[in-house]
Design a protein around this nucleic acid. Structure first.
Length: 113
DNA sequence: ACCGTGACGGTAT
DNA sequence: TATACCGCCACGG
């Protein structure tokens, strides 16, 4: 990934509103980078802490948290999401939560934002 | 250059 | 619903 690509990814993540989430793949597409979901995780890992990105609002396509359950990062992500009113149980955004809005995609940014 | 690895995703069992 | 598999792509050893 080029530094420019990383910056595009960071910009997309920075724009996710509180209480909303996006999948890695969705972030990649929104950044205009195609199927590079894995690189999104890589870009976030490489992101300067000073950017203070809302990295916790990025989940897997099925709504689950990508970190190992019980890990420091995992717990931190759950805490931050709940603090924004997002229901998380068993390491993932509940299907019930997504049900209020049809499916995970409704929790994500649509192509129009 | 080769190969394993991972903050992933979609399909098939 | 939960696994298993395989495709993907950049990194690091």
């Amino acid at each position: 990934m080029t530094p420019a690509a990383h910056r595009r990814i960071w910009r997309v993540v920075a724009a996710i509103p509180p209480g909303r989430v996006m999948s890695y793949g969705q972030v990649a597409r929104c950044a205009g980078l195609g199927r590079v979901a894995r690189q999104v995780g890589q870009a976030l890992r490489a992101a300067p802490a000073a950017l203070d990105l809302p990295w916790h609002r990025v989940l897997r396509a099925d709504g689950s948290i990508a970190f190992p359950p019980g890990s420091r990062a995992f717990n931190q992500q759950v805490r931050r999401l709940r603090a924004e009113g997002v229901t998380v149980m068993h390491g993932r955004v509940t299907r019930r939560e997504a049900a209020g809005r049809p499916d995970l995609d409704r929790l994500l940014w649509g192509p129009g934002g």
